[in-house]
Structures are given as structure tokens and as C-alpha cells.
Design a protein around this nucleic acid. Structure first.
Length: 431
RNA sequence: GUGGUCGUAGUUCAAUGGUAGAGCCCCAGAUUGUGAUUCUGGUUGUUGCGGGUUCGAGUCCCGUCGAUCACCCCA
């Protein structure tokens, strides 16, 4: 590595073809499940006015912004998440759409934090939201999508679980013990850290509110404290046959300040990783972002690409499903044209163009080389067929690479011939 | 931001303080139109960078940068 060399910035990734294929697998799965469940895709800019994020998130997230001044002197930020943009978009365009809105976006986000397992400074996230419906049916519909997404990746019962809670249960708990409304956020923050904070510190912090750790733990432990919304969601999911995937876990509060009600996280069953996905209800965010101009209830969640990929790779059956997909989508082309006789290169080029225009993916060697070389290239391309153009043109030979068998045909009808041939299975098939 | 571990060829890794190597990959070839295997040949390093100890440092020490893991937080 002599001399100056460049590499990707810390926490940023290059997607070589294999990585890109994996990413596409995630994206295609996300997209297909969302569409199957009636969600439509939208997209927002990755660069936004910094104030958009300072306005609602604050705290830790605002310390992790990729923030700078543009050439016009504007304070701008690479988005750390898409919910704020969505709220902005919805506030502006909501009148154009019947409610509820069921929308999703697959987009790249940026956070300046220390890269580690499951976390980079750049990541892709599947963001799904239902806006304009305040009832638990919306939360259930959303959580059902999260579950369906996991199933689509090949996970089964026992691989993952959705843990859900309700901030309202805590607000009721705290209010009954005299916690003031304006201190509620602080109280929720303490509860959020109950498993991570040192016991003495925890006890001390709770004492400010006249509450003990024991009381909090007892509240978490008692299923009777489940909120009506949670129960409605559980029944809804049970009716869908998905009841086994959801669990009450009142210790989940989630850090982001804008959550207002039911919150949930998707975990691997062993809980050996970070949350695969997380979300919840944020009924006041749209009003906050629009300064009260538009007030719509909302619920949503996000799934990041890092953790889901790790979990897929560590779960044998999900990993195999991905491998099969990658194999199927691995070929550079369907047909590799071998130019066995260089004097037929012009005819070969015409043939390649015809195939391509007919929707048949075709490739060929750019330079003269020995025929064996061409076949090696055909092999490496992953193509199913090698179409040999030789001295006997317009007669053509079609070699089925997997079975090493050969057929003959004519250049005049090559397009139809190959289109038909591609429909038929042959040789040792991929699953 | 706070800690632990680790930096050798494109890559995966060797080298009791004593001449920097191997597999894989890639490229070219093995007598004129067919892929595997095999065989032959070839490219690539100021051992991350900078100091120090030593007759001598890839190896030991310090610094720095980078990678990675954990904490914090979160997708």
C-alpha cells in the first residue's frame, strides 16, 4: 500500500456486487411485503433543514447528526431517520390522500456514531407508517406487517418475537403516584434505563418522584397492567394467527421523545442482538412539525439493514433462503455469445442486439480470443446458454452450459428460439 | 465520548529478535472450434505511519492513524 491511498470513510460501506445483491434481496423483500399489505412507496430527500431534527428529536440523536453549512449558508443535515421528513411531507400533502395513509420508504440514513457490530454511520432502513388512524387496529396492522416481513425472510415461530408496551400504561402509573405532566418525559427516561442503570442510581432517581424500584418492577411484572390498546392489538393479531409472535414487555419505553402510546421492538428470540426493528405511536409529531397546522395520529416502525442481515446470516434456514435467491439472481446474463470465428463478429453483434432488444439478457467477448477463452467467460458469467457463432453461420449452436449438451438452430429465428428455450427448464436446476 | 483486541501481497494467513513466504484470486500460456481437473509462467509489499531500544525490529517500547468488539444510544 505505497503512497497515499483512499478508503471508504469510517462507518461507510462499499457495495461490491455480492454486497449489492444482498442489499437488493433485503430491499426486494421489504418492498414486496409492503405492497402485498397495501402500502405505497414514497421518497423524501436525504438532506434536510437541520431544524427539522432539532425540533422533535433533541437529546442523543441531535449529537449524532451529519450536519454542515451549505454554500448558501443554510444549516443542513443528512437525515438520521425518515420519520421527521414524512411528518413534513404529510403535513403538506395530506389533503390529497384518503385516510389512513399506509406508506413506506426504503432509504439511507446517517448518524455520526462509533461504528460497531450492527451499526454503521450510514445504513438503510425500511420505514413503514400508518397515518390518520388513531385506533389500535392501525398498530396491529403495522405490527402484522413487521411480522410478515420477518416471515418473508424465512424466519419462523421461535426465531423472533415482538415485544410491545404502552407508554400510556406508564403515564397512568406515574400520574396515580403524583408525577407531574411536565416531569413525565424524565420519568419515562428512567424507566427506559431500568435494566441498564446501576441499582443505587436508579433508586435515587426514582426517589425524586417518590417511587421505588420495587414498585416499578412489580408494575412491569404484572400482566394485569397491560393497557386496553395492547389487549386490542393482541386480540387483533391473534385473529390473524399471529398471536404467538407478540409479548407484553412493559420495560420497553424507547428513547425517542416523540412516542406517545404503544411502542414495540422486534428481537431475535435469544435477544443476542440489538433490536431488529422498533417503532410505536407518535400522535403529536405531525402537529409539532407543522406547528399545529395539521394534526394527524400516526404509528410507524423502522427496520435497519445491519441487524436483519446479521440475523439472517446467523439463522440457518433464513440464510439458505437468501443464498437461493442470490444464486437465482447471480447470473450476469442468460445467453453468452461465443464468437468462434472472428470473421463473424459483425453478425454476432447484430445477433446480440436482437436478443437484448427482445428482452433476453446477452453478453459477448469484446476482444478476439481463443474459443476456449470465450467458453470460460461464458462459464464465469453464470449464463445458462452459450450461443456459438462460427463458420457455419447462419447455423448456430446452442450449448447448455450446465448439462454440456448441444443443440442447433438458425440465426434467422434465433430470438424466438432462445426465448422459447429460456422458458423450458433443463439440466440440474437450482431450487 | 470511555475502554479491550488487532494492523504483513488484491484476499486469507505464515515467519524462536537474524535474507519477508504460502494458499486462493487475477493475468498469460499448454500446436490451428468447446468449459472441469491438472500443469507451466507472471503481477503485487518502503510489514498502516512516525519515533525509540538493539550489531540487527514484521517481531520489543512509545506515539499516531485505521480496523474491530464492548459501553452510551439507537435502525
Amino acid at each position: 500500500m505505497a503512497g497515499p491511498s483512499f478508503q471508504a470513510l469510517p462507518g461507510f460501506r462499499d457495495f461490491i456486487p455480492r454486497e449489492c445483491a444482498v442489499r437488493n434481496y433485503l430491499f426486494e423483500t421489504w418492498r414486496s411485503v409492503a405492497r402485498r399489505c397495501g402500502y405505497v412507496e414514497y421518497e423524501t430527500p436525504i438532506l434536510e433543514d437541520t431544524a427539522l431534527y432539532l425540533k422533535k428529536s433533541g437529546g442523543e440523536l441531535s449529537a449524532q447528526l451529519f450536519r454542515f453549512e451549505d454554500q448558501g449558508g443554510c444549516d443542513v443535515t443528512l437525515r438520521p431517520e425518515v420519520t421527521a421528513s414524512l411528518a413534513r411531507l404529510v403535513a403538506q400533502h395530506q389533503r390529497d390522500f384518503p385516510k389512513p395513509l399506509k406508506w413506506f420508504e426504503i432509504g439511507q440514513c446517517f448518524r455520526y456514531e462509533k461504528p460497531q457490530k450492527g451499526r454503521g454511520r450510514e445504513f438503510h432502513q425500511f420505514n413503514v407508517d400508518i397515518i390518520g388512524e388513531a385506533g389500535p387496529a392501525a398498530d396491529a396492522e403495522l405490527i402484522a406487517l413487521a411480522i410478515e416481513t420477518m416471515l418473508a425472510f424465512g424466519f419462523v415461530a421461535g426465531d423472533f418475537v415482538v415485544r410491545a408496551s404502552d407508554r400510556n400504561a406508564w403515564i397512568t402509573f406515574a400520574a396515580a403516584r403524583g408525577v407531574a405532566d411536565d416531569a413525565m418525559a424524565d420519568f419515562l427516561n428512567i424507566v427506559d434505563k431500568i435494566e441498564r442503570e446501576k441499582p443505587e442510581v436508579l433508586e435515587q432517581k426514582l426517589a425524586v418522584f417518590g417511587i421505588t424500584t420495587a414498585q416499578v418492577r412489580a408494575f412491569i411484572a404484572d400482566p394485569a397492567n397491560a393497557s386496553p390498546a395492547y389487549l386490542a392489538i393482541r386480540d387483533d393479531l391473534t385473529a390473524r394467527g399471529l398471536g404467538g409472535f407478540i409479548e407484553l414487555d412493559l420495560s420497553i419505553v424507547r428513547g425517542l421523545a416523540y412516542y406517545t402510546g404503544v411502542v414495540f421492538e422486534v428481537f431475535d428470540s435469544k435477544k443476542s442482538m440489538r433490536a431488529v426493528a422498533g417503532g410505536g405511536r407518535y400522535d403529536t409529531l405531525v402537529a409539532t412539525i407543522s406547528d399545529g397546522a395539521v394534526d394527524l395520529p400516526a404509528t410507524g416502525f423502522a427496520m435497519g439493514d445491519y441487524v436483519i442481515r446479521n440475523l439472517i446470516e446467523e439463522t440457518t434456514h433464513a440464510a439458505m433462503q437468501m443464498e437461493v435467491w442470490l444464486q437465482r439472481n447471480n447470473a450476469n446474463c442468460d445467453v453468452y455469445v461465443v464468437i468462434a470465428d472472428e470473421t463473424k463478429r459483425a453478425q454476432s453483434l447484430k445477433l446480440v442486439t436482437e436478443l437484448r432488444r427482445a428482452g433476453i439478457s446477452a453478453d459477448f467477448p469484446l476482444n478476439p480470443a481463443k474459443v476456449s477463452k470465450h467458453f470460460q467467460s461464458a462459464e464465469k458469467s453464470g449464463a445458462r446458454f452459450a450461443l456459438v457463432v462460427g463458420a457455419e453461420f447462419p447455423e448456430l449452436k446452442l450449448k447448455i452450459l450446465a448439462s454440456r449438451t448441444e443443440e442447433t438452430g438458425n440465426a434467422e429465428t434465433a430470438v424466438d428460439w432462445l426465448a422459447d428455450r429460456l422458458q423450458q427448464p433443463d439440466g440440474p436446476l437450482l431450487a
